[in-house]
């Protein structure tokens, strides 16, 4: 445990997002490390297991972002392309579960949030922290992948939007620059009542990291899928967007999609591994079974 050196760290609250990004940029330019602290459910656990800092090494500055108003949005924004839901980076899972608008318009997010850790983790853990840690097992990120979220980041160079499909580049790496702060995610809201799926396979319901998790959202018109998003946790070095499965779902009337082609598509899209939580074979089996069940829910054969 390295908790003793933690007590010599500073904890700062930036007065505004502009001040926050300026401070992060300044320190980054001088090669100094800054920690953005939201719910601490990833960062503090990491502090427990790291070795103590060597003497003489400057301690990072910790900036509390958990209550920064600019990061706390949870609202529907109406625009030309239809209604969009904005979820601030510092919004917690419990807030997602309790939000009426999320429950009504983006129930996938509420359903996913109910399966993260247990209440104690849901009350603290945030969407921004889940995205920044960027574990391929992250449940929140799988849901954001399914919803094709846009990720809003800000730095001294200004604000920009990273489409989810352009975010992840490899195991825990992304196109977000080190001095870019996550501000919010935005999703194009599915039509009311649109079918969705959240399935998490884990050792038990609470406090368990996904062996495999599937998030999905779809719109179906006249037997054809017109919107289809999926995200899968723990089957690849990044959150899997399953492009072959997406293309298959959109390619023909849903009733013409058969189990064998679904299995082939899943196999093309995932590269699971053996690790402490599961095996490659079991993960592949689950991945196929979950996607087949989801497509059957939408009207596919077998």
């Amino acid at each position: 445990m390295s908790l003793t050196d933690l007590e010599s760290y500073e904890l700062l609250h930036a007065p505004s997002l502009a001040a926050l990004v300026a401070l992060v940029a300044d320190r980054h330019a001088s090669g100094l490390h800054t920690v953005l602290l939201a719910g601490g459910t990833d960062w503090l656990v990491e502090q427990e297991s790291r070795p103590p800092l060597p003497s003489g090494v400057e301690h990072p500055v910790v900036l509390d972002v958990s209550r920064m108003p600019e990061l706390r949005a949870l609202e529907v924004v109406s625009g030309e392309g239809g209604d969009r839901l904005r979820v601030g980076a510092a919004v917690t899972y419990l807030e997602l579960r309790r939000s009426a608008v999320v429950g009504e318009r983006a129930p996938l997010l509420a359903r996913m949030a109910a399966d993260v850790g247990a209440l104690q983790i849901q009350a603290r853990g945030t969407i921004g922290g889940n995205l920044a840690t960027a574990s391929p097992a992250a449940d929140g990120v799988a849901a954001l992948a399914a919803l094709d979220a846009d990720v809003l980041v800000e730095s001294v160079r200004g604000r920009r939007t990273i489409p989810f499909s352009a975010l992840q580049t490899g195991y825990k790496t992304s196109t977000r620059a080190p001095d870019e702060v996550l501000v919010a995610v935005e999703i194009a809201l599915p039509s009311r009542g649109a079918p969705f799926v959240w399935r998490k396979v884990a050792a038990r319901r609470a406090q368990a990291i996904s062996k495999v998790a599937l998030a999905g959202v779809a719109e179906v018109e006249d037997g054809r899928v017109t919107r289809f998003g999926v995200g899968m946790a723990s089957v690849a070095p990044v959150t899997a967007r399953l492009p072959t499965v997406r293309a298959l779902a959109l390619s023909r009337p849903i009733a013409e999609i058969d189990a064998a082609s679904v299995d082939r598509a899943v196999e093309a899209d995932v590269s699971p591994i053996d690790d402490v939580r599961s095996t490659r074979d079991y993960r592949l089996h689950c991945a196929k079974a979950l996607v087949r069940a989801w497509l059957r829910q939408l009207g596919a054969r077998g």
Binding site: G40, T41, V62, D64, L119, Q120, I121, A123, R124
Partner: peptide, 15 residues
Amino acid sequence: LDGDPVCSCLVPVGQ
């Protein structure tokens, strides 16, 4: 913490 259960082992007092 403000009525919601949290793990006090993962909450810095400064927050």
